Simulated scan of single mutants.
Amino acid sequence: MPADGGGLVLVLNAGSSSLKFAGFAAMPEGPEPRFGGQVEGIGAAPHLVARNAAGEVLADHRWDGGDAPANHAEALGVIVRGLDQALQGEAILAIGHRVVHGGTDFAAPLRIDDAAMAALDRLVPLAPLHQPHNLVGIRAAAAHFPGVPQVACFDTAFHRTQSWAAETYALPPRFYDQGIRRYGFHGLSYEYISRRIAAEDAALGAGRLVVAHLGNGASLCAIEGGRSRASTMGFTALDGIPMGTRSGQIDPGVVLHMIDALGMTTAEVTRLLYNGSGLKGLSGVSQDVRQIEAAGTEAAGRALEHFAFRVRREIGAMAASIGGIDALVFTAGIGENAHGLRARICAGLEFLGITLDPARNAANAAEISAAGAAVRVLVRRTDEEGMIARHTLDLLRAG
């Protein structure tokens, strides 16, 4: 491809009922954002929103008739038709995809071909609630854009620098050899934050970071010298801290009790732990922190208290795994915006050198630590789509 720019890199992130998309101009210095958006509610009440790089709305459409996209392929068709009008003949050079699970073999972005798709299909049992939707997005894109290179970027890849001790479970070695180990997720977000911090402050980027990716899916990662050393998510994206609707870490004996004593099926337990627990299950209100805070009920308050306690506990654990902490970074929807919850989380972490400036925290400032605090506390917007675009462009240019 030409090294002097021209053309577009399209990024697709297929979820269970949504398809996020973003377009980046292929510039010599790297991908430059042009537009982004998503079709959500696929199969139920689809809603398309698209914005340009300045945040201005380009499209906002809800379907209420028989022409609504019923699956990811049809949703991509809607996006493609919009692109045809917007691009005015500009070529799509490559398509980058977020793929949740790369297993043990894929620790870097991958050019997708038939053999790669077969390998990714074999990983579906490791992420049955996520991987199939990612692969549907890839197949739909291949049908709409025949011949256009496609690249898989893995959420697990960033964590492959962790040690055996950090990865393994205390099970007989044969299970580790079969792939039952801690993989970690949100890797594209952590990689972006790590690179961004290093670009802002090389010394800090080479130091010890604890990054809290707090959104509907939530986890923490200990990063030392730009490399993942420990993370709260494990074999699946269910482990670790509580999330919007996911339980997070739970005693395995509870699951056995639910099945053996309560008579729940594995499907019922799966739905409970993935979709009926976390902030939503505890609060009885919502997984949205804004709605929980506004509810003002005892259950809502206890949900926030528990979430803050678990995140605070894991900050200490992540710091211990890398021998200390130079900066704590909050990112993702809750991390970037929920200043009240950030204050709850950091209360009691003074022993680590973490102290917030209340005014700066309330303003969602880029740095919210108190003057003179031993540990910097930062708020940074993550950009998984931008990270995917960069990986895709780099792989394309490398041939």
Rank of each mutant, 00 (worst) to 15 (best):
R380D: 00
S321Y: 09
E385W: 08
W63G: 14
R208I: 12
A365D: 15
L209Q: 05
R160Q: 15
M27V: 13
R139F: 05
A365Q: 02
A222R: 10
M258K: 09
A320M: 11
A370H: 08
M27H: 13
W63P: 07
G278C: 10
I354N: 01
A170C: 14
D288Y: 00
L204Q: 14
G43Q: 10
R62H: 13
R380I: 09
H47G: 00
A116L: 04
L171Q: 04
T382G: 14
W63V: 08
L120M: 04
R381E: 15
D251V: 00
I292M: 11
M233P: 13
D64M: 07
I197D: 08
T270M: 03
A75E: 02
M318W: 03
G248N: 08
L129K: 01
L83P: 04
H47A: 04
E167P: 00
G77E: 12
A45C: 04
A107P: 02
M233D: 03
H61G: 01
Y190R: 03
A53F: 04
A398P: 07
N361M: 12
A308N: 02
S18V: 08
D64W: 06
I292D: 09
T232A: 07
S163Q: 06
A86T: 14
G348P: 06
A107S: 15
H159C: 06
I345P: 03
K280R: 14
V136L: 13
S321L: 06
L396T: 02
G65L: 04
E367N: 06
E200H: 06
A365I: 06
F24P: 00
E268S: 04
N364M: 03
G89N: 08
Y192C: 05
A50S: 15
F307G: 12
N13P: 03
A26G: 07
V311L: 05
L110P: 01
G244T: 04
R397Y: 01
I334G: 10
V210W: 11
P33S: 04
G399Q: 07
G187D: 06
P252L: 07
T355P: 00
M318D: 06
S228V: 01
A73L: 11
P172A: 14
A73Y: 10
A343R: 14
F158R: 02
D113K: 05
L272R: 11
G372S: 03
I138R: 02
E90A: 09
G225K: 12
A50G: 13
S219P: 09
I223N: 12
G137P: 00
A320I: 00
G207M: 11
A68V: 07
R271M: 11
G77M: 07
S18R: 02
G205F: 10
T392W: 01
A140I: 08
H72W: 10
M258A: 14
G207L: 11
